[in-house]
Each structure stands twice: as structure tokens, then as C-alpha cells.
Design a protein around this nucleic acid. Sequence first.
DNA 1: ATATTAATGCAAATTATATGCATCTAATTA
DNA 2: TAATTAGATGCATATAATTTGCATTAATAT
Lengths: 142, 142
Amino acid sequence: MNLDITLSSLQDKGHRITKVRKEVVKIFSENTTPLSANQVEEKMLQVCLSVNKATIYRELQFLLANGYLVEVYLRPNEVSYESSELKHHHHLVCSTCGAIDNVTNCLASELEDDVFKKRGFRIKQHTLEFYGTCAECARKTT
Amino acid sequence: MNLDITLSSLQDKGHRITKVRKEVVKIFSENTTPLSANQVEEKMLQVCLSVNKATIYRELQFLLANGYLVEVYLRPNEVSYESSELKHHHHLVCSTCGAIDNVTNCLASELEDDVFKKRGFRIKQHTLEFYGTCAECARKTT
DNA sequence: ATATTAATGCAAATTATATGCATCTAATTA
DNA sequence: TAATTAGATGCATATAATTTGCATTAATAT
Ligand SMILES: [Mn+2]
Ligand SMILES: [Mn+2]
Ligand SMILES: [Zn+2]
Ligand SMILES: [Zn+2]
């Protein structure tokens, strides 16, 4: 997501542009892989912004509710977020180092029509996550 | 999963067959859709077995660690489990009524080779979840 | 029947997340 | 620029899911 465009869009809707909001939007405009509340907090600390956890959760909820972020569930008991503007994609999650990469290939749409025809289930969205070992971790092991 | 076979397999490995263990295994042998700890507790109450929550969590962890169950993440902050013996499949989750159905179609394996060739990421498993409206909920709305 | 140790219940601890409330501050207005 | 106002924030507290310590109970082997 584009930082300036997003911020002015938020302002147009009557929302305030605060230091925290600006930084959270900036973080998601610079990161194309999903981030959890904890990871957002860490990124903010890296630029010497110490923000209360409640504020971070509230800001993530705010951006989610306003359509700027989407939720991603990759692990139990931890919700991650990423820009809703990213082109439809899926994730490669390395079980060893935790690195996440995006894959834009998607074969799911073919299935969706089929599922609707066969049982009347209308698919609105889907998540497809791949777990395995990334190239770097595989190299280290060898 | 087959109740008797699973129980004797557990016994062969030196694990005890307790009332709780037997019932949890029974529940997963009779249910092909994912169940959370709370749902397992409810099912046990239906057969008048009041079991402590900690025990249920421990038993689910136990069956997971021993390969009888797999984790499924369909919603934030709730882990579900299902028999690891079920044939590879994916889920149709109705956003309206919460009903879950299984789909055995899977197009992901084609993608896996491609991903490995292109970036050396070796996929071990994947999850593909579909969210939408089931036939029944669609009918009620109309 | 007895011994051994895994399984269980209960309370307390953890972790992720949400909320109430007083305070602060961004945006608007005088 | 100062005053106004409602949204944003911090802090403490509340929830909810899950885990853990410990004493007690019960499944299995002898
Ligand atoms: Mn992504
Ligand atoms: Mn399933
Ligand atoms: Zn897709
Ligand atoms: Zn599949």
C-alpha cells in the first residue's frame, strides 16, 4: 500500500493522522509479508517509537475495519495482518526459520465454480498456505 | 480414524486407555470435520462425561504429538483438530452458520513442484480453506 | 492385591487480545 | 494563535484460549 495515498485517504474519511497511525501504515507499506501485533511493535521500536500494546491492537483493528488490512492465520493463537491492496496471493512459510514469502500462483478459482455447482456453497474467499523448508534453511542443513 | 485400531495402537505403544482418552478418540472417529477443545468438551458432556478443560487440552496435545490428530486453524484464537488419517482434503467454512464441510479436490500439488523448481522452497504440507455461504444459509436468505 | 507411574482435577500462570477511563493531541474553528 | 472538540493513547484491568505445577487417582504390570 502506498503511504501517502493511504494517509490522505484516511484523512479524507475524517480520521486523524497520528504518529502511531502514520508509522503503522508506513510499516505495512514497506512490508509485503504478514506481520503480527508483536512484529509491528518490534518494527516501531526499531525507529524508537515505544507504543503501548493496546494502542497497536486498536490500530490494527482500526485498519482492518476500514479495509486497509486483512487478517492472515498462519500459526495457532496469533493473527497476522498484511495490506489489503496486495494482489491476491498465498504464502510459503518456512517451518525452520519462520521466513514468509508470497506466491502469486493460484489455482483455487477453478475449484470454486465446481464447488458451487456441486453443492451450492458460494465461496467468497480462500486461504492457501504452504509450509515447508526454504532454500536457505535447506542449504544450511546439507 | 478407527476407534478400536487406534486404541490398541495406543496401548501397544505403552499408553493407557482411560475413559477420557477412549471418548476423545471415539469423538474423532465419528467426526470428520475439525473440532476445537470447546467442541470436544461439549461432545463429552452430551454423553455425560464432565472432563476438566486442562485434561482435554492435554489429551489433544497428546494425540497431536503422537500423530493421531492434526491441527487446523480456521479462525483467530482457536485451534481445531481432526483425525490425521483422513484423506488429504480442504474445508468449506460457512461464514454465516459456521458449518464445516470437507472437499477432497486439491490442485495444490501441481504448484508445489513449480515452487521448488523456481525458488528451492520444499513444501511439506499446505492448508487451503474456503470461506463463504453454504447452500442452506443462501436458501434462508433468499 | 500391590506397586508403579501415567492420567486427572484444580488452581494458578501465560499469552494474545479487548476494554474502561482519564488524559492527551490532531484537526477545526474562532 | 488560542480555544474547542472528538478521536487517539496509555495504563490498568478484564477476557479467552491454552499451559503448567502439584497433589490425588486410577490404569496396567507383577
Ligand atoms: Mn502475504
Ligand atoms: Mn477436515
Ligand atoms: Zn488463491
Ligand atoms: Zn490440498
